[in-house]
Amino acid sequence: MSTSITTAPLNNQQHIVWLDVVRFIAMFTVVCCHCTDPFNFYPEPLTDNIADIKLWGAIYGALLRPCVPLFVMITGALLLPVRGDASVFYKKRIFRVLWPFLIWSVVYNLFPWITGLFGLNPTIIQDFFPYAGEEVTRQSLAVSVDYIAQIPFNFSIVDVHMWYIYLLIGLYLYLPIFSAWVEKASEKAKLWFLAVWGVTLLLPYYNEFVAQYLWGTCSWNAFGMLYYFAGFNGYLLLGHYLRNLDWSIGKTLAIGIPMFAVGYAVTFAGFRYITALPEYTDEMLELFFTYCSLNVVMMTIPVFMLAKKANPRSETVRKALANLTVCGFGIYMIHYFFTGPSVVLMRNLNLPLGLQIPAASVVAFGVSWLIVWAVYRAFGKKAKYVMG
């Protein structure tokens, strides 16, 4: 999630409201996406309505896939091409996200142990973190310390949302290098790159359903012919390119609605197909939810283009969106503490299943935003070291 609030050209310090709207959509949908985890990964023992729970988890889980791609596209739209010296860029961007990432990663990993100190039942951990396995239920300091020691290498089972920060830092490292080409490339060259990237979006399905290796990949080589066009760098360029592409509202709807519908149909049907299999791996479970897949791109482009048409006239709304730009990274850091409990709350309130995920999302998002806003209100600019 880009923490920048300015727009390109960055040195103009202009503020584009529709990018704030995209950020709001991305931020709320990522919270909503994590509220689907207690549905798609319902803990034992199962209930009589588990089929309905899984169905609604799939309905919303598929619908919300554009959340992370939108964040990357915002970064590309704001920061490409990179201005100024690369070392200044790295210092400003990477360290802004690094310290909050480290602080909150430690807090999340200590949480199971802290629940033990308070004498809480170990089952409460699964209310917070649906992915949590048996190891964290030991509420052991040794387990928490082991997870913390692994932070330089990867996220743990209790802070799974931190996977994005590793990606974000990697994108920041890559941006000045990629920017040198973007700045000089013609529109035709950019489209050519995006077209090749589009081919790579089909590779997850080729690898799963056809063959493991393609275009030079083999047991001793993971870097195939189109490897350097693959991944989230395509979303960076897509955000940069679409920012300057102007469609009428009619064209946006005429192209966007069918595109989104097809993308959603593939995502939902594919996920349901996998989960209906007698056995499936974690990789198979995530196959149709993969962010770098053609079906997810088809859902993401219409959302981005439609958000470009947003122009809220209310000054209150504009100020709130601008505040979200400041608080957004902090919300991402802390929201995972509230998604699981918010779903539990909705279940206890006996809300209809179809409303539980959006209602829980509103609570988790609102509480997270309020906390981050209060921290900034209390500590001013110093809050950035904890909240980003």
Rank of each mutant, 00 (worst) to 15 (best):
295 N>D: 13
249 I>T: 08
264 Y>H: 04
296 V>E: 04
250 G>K: 07
311 N>A: 15
306 L>W: 14
335 H>N: 04
336 Y>G: 15
261 A>L: 08
357 I>G: 10
338 F>L: 13
366 G>M: 11
251 K>T: 12
285 L>C: 12
348 N>M: 15
356 Q>E: 15
329 F>H: 00
247 W>M: 08
305 M>Q: 12
248 S>L: 05
252 T>C: 14
267 T>V: 05
299 M>N: 01
280 Y>N: 09
273 Y>V: 01
364 A>C: 07
294 L>G: 11
304 F>Y: 11
337 F>H: 03
273 Y>P: 01
352 P>C: 05
321 L>P: 00
357 I>H: 12
263 G>C: 06
290 T>W: 00
366 G>H: 08
348 N>R: 12
328 G>Q: 03
284 M>S: 12
328 G>M: 05
289 F>A: 11
346 M>H: 04
263 G>L: 07
359 A>F: 14
274 I>P: 07
256 G>C: 02
348 N>P: 05
297 V>A: 14
303 V>N: 07
309 K>D: 14
283 E>L: 13
328 G>S: 04
292 C>G: 00
296 V>F: 01
353 L>K: 01
255 I>F: 12
291 Y>K: 00
327 C>G: 02
356 Q>Y: 11
278 P>S: 03
344 V>F: 14
364 A>G: 04
286 E>M: 14
304 F>Q: 08
341 P>Q: 03
348 N>K: 10
328 G>I: 02
362 V>C: 11
278 P>D: 10
249 I>M: 06
263 G>Q: 06
343 V>A: 06
301 I>E: 07
258 P>R: 02
324 L>Q: 01
282 D>Y: 10
314 S>W: 05
262 V>W: 01
259 M>G: 03
349 L>S: 09
247 W>T: 01
333 M>A: 10
268 F>M: 05
326 V>Y: 02
291 Y>L: 11
338 F>A: 07
317 V>W: 06
298 M>H: 02
360 A>N: 06
273 Y>H: 07
335 H>K: 08
275 T>V: 15
320 A>S: 02
345 L>Q: 05
297 V>H: 05
337 F>N: 03
334 I>A: 09
280 Y>E: 03
366 G>K: 06
264 Y>F: 15
315 E>Q: 09
253 L>V: 12
255 I>E: 12
359 A>S: 15
349 L>P: 09
257 I>M: 07
311 N>F: 11
254 A>M: 13
265 A>Q: 04
335 H>Y: 06
286 E>W: 12
297 V>M: 15
338 F>V: 04
256 G>I: 08
291 Y>H: 12
334 I>C: 08
311 N>V: 05
347 R>S: 13
286 E>Y: 14
295 N>T: 06
248 S>I: 04
305 M>E: 14
356 Q>P: 15
281 T>I: 03
337 F>D: 05
347 R>L: 15
318 R>I: 10
320 A>L: 14
276 A>T: 09
324 L>W: 04
332 Y>R: 00
319 K>C: 07
337 F>L: 12
309 K>E: 15
264 Y>D: 07
248 S>K: 00
363 V>W: 05
299 M>P: 02
263 G>Y: 05
268 F>N: 01
262 V>T: 06
360 A>L: 07
282 D>W: 08
273 Y>D: 09
354 G>T: 10
325 T>M: 11
270 G>I: 00
264 Y>L: 13
308 K>W: 14
344 V>W: 13
255 I>H: 02
257 I>V: 13
252 T>Y: 00
300 T>Q: 03
324 L>P: 01
327 C>K: 06
304 F>S: 08
308 K>G: 13
263 G>D: 09
